[in-house]
Computed example of a mutant assay.
Amino acid sequence: MAGTTSASTTSAAGAARPVDDEVRRRIVGAADALYYARGIQSVGMDEVRTAAGVSLKRLYSEFPGKEQLVLAVLDARHRQWEAGLAQAAAGLTDPRARLLAVFDFLEQWFGDDTFRGCGFINAFGELSATSPAVAEAARAHKQTFQDYVAQLAHELVGDRELGSQLALLAEGAQTTAAIAGRPDAAAHARRAAEVLIDAALSRA
């Protein structure tokens, strides 16, 4: 989850412009790496400029303020998250298997040396009190994930409540892995998810 991708228009994360040219992608990638490793508020625009290898004038022509840059980083992370979920579920047609693939995706992510928790939760914790746009981007990202899991649960048992339960497991696993340094949180959450899914199937 540390990189960025090129892409289209606005997303659930709320960035106002597409990340579609090489310089812009480089700026967003540099900002993402710095923000994720050290926190958003501790990183100045000049550091981003240096890491991206662009002039300060070019940086500000692309992103007139830090908030716009943060939103672009979150937009790229949102798209990368969705691509990761899609890749984990690729080739799987059974909703049960696709639900469990969410936790397989988390396990792979937690094992990455750069893992520092959810970038959206991190950004919300730092900036939600002063940036409604960042807070909304975080909420929108979480909502799209909850909707994704709820839809799979509905396809499996005709009940979206199971999706809410599984989404909470996934969110808790992210927090545990980040704070406690426990990449096995994904495996524990997956086993709990299997219990919930099988119980729901037995009731259906």
Score class of each variant (00 low, 15 high):
Thr9Asn: 13
Thr9Lys: 12
Ser11Trp: 07
Ala12Glu: 08
Ala12Asn: 08
Gly14Ile: 05
Ala16Pro: 05
Ala16Asn: 09
Val19Asn: 11
Asp20Lys: 14
Asp20Tyr: 03
Arg24Trp: 00
Ile27Val: 15
Val28Trp: 01
Gly29Pro: 07
Ala30His: 03
Ile40Phe: 12
Val43Ala: 05
Gly44Phe: 02
Met45Gly: 02
Ala52Trp: 01
Leu56Trp: 04
Leu59Trp: 07
Tyr60Ile: 03
Glu62Asn: 11
Phe63Val: 04
Leu71Val: 06
His78Tyr: 12
Gln80Gly: 13
Gln80Cys: 10
Trp81Ala: 08
Trp81His: 13
Ala83Ser: 14
Gln87Arg: 15
Ala90Val: 10
Leu92Trp: 10
Thr93Trp: 11
Arg96Asn: 07
Ala97Thr: 08
Val102Met: 09
Asp104Ser: 11
Leu106His: 12
Leu106Ser: 08
Glu107Phe: 05
Gln108Thr: 15
Phe115Tyr: 15
Cys118Leu: 02
Gly119Phe: 06
Phe120Cys: 00
Ile121Thr: 12
Glu126Lys: 10
Leu127Ala: 03
Ser128Arg: 11
Ala129Ile: 00
Ala129Glu: 11
Thr130Ile: 09
Pro132Met: 02
Ala137His: 00
Ala138Ile: 03
Ala138Leu: 00
Arg139Ile: 09
Arg139Gln: 11
Lys142Asp: 13
Val149His: 03
Ala150Val: 04
Ala153Gly: 10
His154Tyr: 13
Glu155Ser: 12
Glu155Arg: 12
Leu156Gly: 09
Leu156Cys: 06
Gln165Lys: 14
Leu168Glu: 11
Gly172Lys: 05
Ala173Val: 00
Thr176Gln: 09
Thr176His: 07
Ala178Thr: 05
Ala180Trp: 00
Ala180Leu: 13
Arg182Asp: 11
Pro183Met: 02
His188Met: 12
His188Leu: 13
Ala189Asp: 03
Val195Asp: 09
Ala199Asp: 14
Ala200Ser: 15
Arg203Ile: 07
